[in-house]
Amino acid sequence: MTLETIESEIEANVPGCVLEIVSNPSPSGQHSLRIDPAHAVAIATFLRDAEPLRLDYCSNVTGVDWPGKEISEKVKIKKLVDGVEQEVEEVRKTQTLGHLEVVYHLYSMEKKHGPVILRMSTEDRADRVHLPSLTPVWRSAEFQEREIFDLYGVIFDGHPDLRRILMWDGFQDHPMRRDYVEPDDFEYEPTPHDEVLERARQHRTIMGVQ
C-alpha cells in the first residue's frame, strides 16, 4: 500500500484531519506522513485497528529539533527618494520560531509490512511544546516518549508516567536540542582549534589565566 492510498484511507475515515506527505529525496525513499496533533490519537487508532493496514507495532520513536532561523528576502518597495518616486530593493529579515518534531516508525507484525512513518510537530520550541501521547495506542512508545521528553523537552499529554528517564529529575536542560550548552568541565588538549579553541579560551578566562 503506497503512502498516498494510506493518506486517502485516513482522510476518508478520520474526519477533519490534516495530512501532508513529506517526501524523502534520498535513495531509501522512506517518505513520511505529517499528521496534525489534534487528530493524532484517532489517526493512530485507525492505523492500528483498521484492515488491511493493522500497524500493530511501533518500533521506534525519535525526536528532531528544528531551531528557528533567520530568513532574509529581498522586497521591492516604492519610496520617495529626493522627491522622486523610485523602486528601492530592501532586505527584510524575519525570524522563524522553529519547532520540535516527533517521528514514529510503524510496522505490522500481522501483515508483515512497514514501515509507515508518522511525524508530528509542536508549534514552537519554547512553551507551546505539547503533543498528544501515542502510548495509549502503542505501549512500546512509553519509554521512548519519556526519552524525548527528557532530551528534547516535548510534553506528551496523556502519557501515563511522564518523567525524565536518562537524566535526573532536577535536571533542567534538554541536551539533544541544538542550542544546548554543556557544562564547562572539560580538560582541553594543548592544540585545540576552531570551536574548541574558542571554548578553551573562554575556559581560561573563567579560570583567570590569559
Binding site: 533542567q172 582541553y188 592544540t191 578553551a200
Partner: peptide, 27 residues
C-alpha cells in the same frame, strides 16, 4: 548532588584539579 545543569560540585578540589593546558600556540 544533582544540580540543575551538572553535578554539584562538578569535582572535589581536594582530590583533583583540572590541568590548565597552555593553548597560547594553538590556532
Amino acid at each position: 548532588e544533582f544540580g540543575a545543569h551538572d553535578l554539584d560540585p562538578s569535582q572535589n578540589p581536594e582530590v583533583w584539579q583540572a590541568p590548565l593546558v597552555n593553548i597560547s600556540l594553538a590556532g
